[in-house]
Design a protein around this nucleic acid. Structure first.
Lengths: 99, 99
DNA sequence: ACTAAATTTGACAACTCTGTCCAAATTAAT
DNA sequence: ATTAATTTGGACAGAGTTGTCAAATTTAGT
């Protein structure tokens, strides 16, 4: 029922493959403390982290991005009544822009 | 073909019904200068503006929100490769959360 | 229990963001 | 052309964000 948040997603995975925060943080070139905060949802993840996270956690980049986006959108736009329609419209526009 | 940006959308409409910035800004309870910047895309619109904007510009709130969301998402997430998938996933989650 | 490693916490500086104020520039009306 | 109204620009303050550092706490290994 409940949606996996981005922070839980990456923390679970990191524990799964038994990497210490220290190592992952070093790979992302950020402080251990920063990553700790991100993993506990105290701070949002920077989009810059996505690619290196997918690498060191051996996750599909697409899945990482998807989880990140879904999470951030619900947080950023959660208060708007017509969010679903807005998202559909956004999708259309993005497809249009690709061409 | 080109997507209407939120700022163009509200500026066009304001000019259409011939309201000065001054009046609209007063209704939103912000400085004229701030609204000027928003209408030219120099500053993002606050979500707080959406409701009063729809009222004074006599626009459907749903349309206002949809335009706002679509615009903001392309600006916020434009750099991500898997944005379309992320949006679909976000939609699913939002629907799930409604229940 | 002791030690070392891992993680969390809080204070902090640098930076960004939001909106205001007021002066300058542009546009409209007579 | 002058005047009045509208719009824009830039300096600014206050609030919020981002990541770091170092100390405190928790967890794991012996």
């Amino acid at each position: 029922m409940s949606n996996i948040t981005f922070c839980d997603y990456i923390r679970k995975r990191r524990e799964e493959i038994e990497l210490p925060l220290r190592k992952v943080a070093a790979y992302l070139d950020i402080d251990t403390s920063t990553l700790s905060k991100v993993e506990r949802g105290e701070r949002p993840a920077s989009p810059d982290y996505l690619k290196p996270l997918s690498e060191i956690l051996e996750l599909d980049l697409k899945e990482v991005q998807t989880t990140y986006i879904a999470d951030k959108i619900t947080k950023d736009f959660g208060g708007l009544e017509h969010l679903s329609e807005g998202l559909k419209e956004a999708e259309k526009q993005i497809k249009r822009n690709k061409k």
